[in-house]
């Protein structure tokens, strides 16, 4: 910033300033890039190892594979079970997609109510909701399991999806409420003058304004559900219903000798959807933030 301003001036001092600024930039970037690479190293190793044989994985230090061999991928995809990973990915999406849909609908509705309506006991209800955020998920597992057992819903996807339909992902509600509070009410008042009722207001005004926050909800819920291991482990018992996270686990345990290359190759593939969703959404994060910037 100041480099450009001082460069427009004249004299030796300015040259010195420019050089100092440039040096600073170089140091800053070198430091950041090094840190970034260190943090990304396990990922590089993972990708590299996915092309290696068992022997190579445990003997070679470097992450660069000796040959580009896709057999671990093919083997891994086939799995030692009767289903291929096509099935498991499909299962994952059967959980993730409905869950995202019910999460967004329920959380937006609840957040709208908390942020924009006055009702009896609102403050207390909101604090209770925030308090449940502090509650570790694990505490709820047993009662929830027993409950779903009574409902006769075990070994189906319902226990994994249904809770989200009641806005139990309080973190998302909280995030949406905070976002909504930051949006001035004038537009809603204008919409009220235009004749919107509460639901029309939600649909035509609030949801478009909330878009960036909703996209964050989608991304987080996608990644978290995709990676969720405990939930499916507890509720699902038939292999044909397993999502990717569980299938990965059984691909380690099923055979006597573990083919690490295949396991790692599938791990890499299992990462891809989350990474893809993140990058696809990234543009909208930026877009959304820019479009809510109101002009004064």
């Amino acid at each position: 910033m100041s480099a450009t301003t001082s460069a427009t001036g004249v004299g030796a001092v300015d040259h010195y300033e420019v050089r100092k600024e440039r040096l600073n930039t170089i140091i800053r970037y070198t430091l950041l890039i090094t840190m970034g690479l260190i943090m990304l190293y396990p990922l590089f190793w993972l990708i590299g190892a996915s092309f290696k044989s068992n022997a190579e994985i445990f003997t070679e230090v470097g992450f660069w594979p000796s040959r580009l061999d896709f057999t671990p991928y093919i083997k891994g995809w086939k799995t030692s079970t009767e289903y291929t990973f096509t099935r498991y990915f499909f299962n994952s999406f059967l959980i993730v997609i409905p869950r995202i849909i019910v999460t967004v609908i329920s959380c937006v509705l609840v957040a709208y109510a908390f942020a924009r309506f006055d009702f009896w006991g609102k403050k207390i209800l909101f604090s209770i909701m925030v308090a449940t955020m502090m509650l570790p998920q694990i505490v709820l597992r047993i009662p929830q399991y027993i409950m779903f057992q009574h409902f006769d819903m075990l070994d189906s996807y319902t226990p994994l999806i249904l809770p989200s339909a009641f806005a139990t992902d309080t973190f998302f509600v909280f995030m949406l409420v905070q976002f909504l509070r930051g949006i001035p009410r004038d537009m809603e008042e204008a919409a009220q003058m235009d004749g919107c009722n509460s639901l029309q207001m939600l649909w035509y005004i609030i949801v478009p304004l909330l878009k960036p926050a909703i996209i964050s909800v989608i991304v987080f819920q996608f990644i978290w559900t995709m990676n969720d291991f405990i939930g499916p482990l507890i509720y699902l018992s038939s292999v044909d219903k397993y999502p990717v996270s569980l299938a990965l686990k059984i691909s380690i345990g099923a055979t006597e000798e573990v083919e690490w290359g295949s396991v790692i190759a599938i791990s890499v593939l299992a990462l891809l959807p989350s990474v893809a969703v993140f990058f696809a959404a990234q543009k909208h994060f930026v877009d959304g933030v820019a479009s809510t910037g109101l002009k004064g």
């Binding site: 537009m187 204008a190 919409a191």
Partner: peptide
């Protein structure tokens, strides 16, 4: 009654045309 707000309160996600038409469509 129709109101003009101090900071205009236009709907940022709609084009000008849609901003103008919104109330009429709702009617």
């Amino acid at each position: 009654a129709a109101m003009v707000f101090q900071n205009y309160a236009l709907y940022p996600h709609m084009k000008v045309r849609e901003n103008l038409a919104f109330g009429l469509k709702l009617q």
